[in-house]
Amino acid sequence: MEQEQSFQRSTADPHHDPGDFVAEEKRIQQAKPNYVGVFVALAILTAIEISITLIFPSEEGAGATIGRVPLLLFLTVAKALLVILYYMHLKFDSRLYSYFFGAGVLAFGLPFVISMIFLMSPPQLASQRHEGGAPGEQRPTPNPNAGPPVTLKLQGFEFEFDPGALAANSGQVVRIELQNTGSVEHNFVMPSEPVATLPEPWVTNNGTVIAKAPVASVGKGGFTAPAPGDYAFYCNVPGHALAGMHGIISIK
């Protein structure tokens, strides 16, 4: 409404030249936007956002019923509009600026972000993403009785690990330090299932990358040792495991 009026003012008054820079400044001054008020509004909106997140910490349960994410996005857009219209005074400025900014955000930026989300994360993966792993995968929990965290050091080169056999206790926090002494990148990949069920996990590229080591560097990473058993570990750079770059870690 306010915007409408200011525009009418600018066209109705023949002495008023909205293109003129000095006149434009005057128009902003005349409008006397209450900048402190805008700040208070921004602060209140932020406080609402934060409390929504604190009260409904996840997308499940009560949070889902009130449409937590759409609400948060709505509040964000409201805040963004306040900043754009008042602090960047697009509300009082030439519409040409709004067209450029609108083209950036509305015509190209936003559609790109939305289509990327749909194109790259198909909905069927949603459950997986919430769990943070494959469906049904159980993450081992650290067991304080299993002993202090242990650091296992090994070297990787073409195409071997040295040592090729490692050991840890179930539930123990394990840190891996993979030193790459070869001439191409190597990594340390471990499947979630033991050798008994998965003798050659590299065939299906089963497992998570624990550490990766580019040439002449030390790749670090860690995991909580899973249930007892012998687990294979390998390098999943194509061809490396097949050439013999794998080993066994025994969990007791």
């Binding site: 293109g19 040409l96 600026y97 450029f100 900014f101 930026g109």
Partner: peptide
């Protein structure tokens, strides 16, 4: 357009930054 070169430049640049 009556708009200052530099201000127009900044706005177009900001539009680019949004992407």
């Amino acid at each position: 357009t009556g708009l200052d070169h530099r201000k127009l430049l900044i706005w177009v640049f900001i539009a680019s930054e949004t992407i």
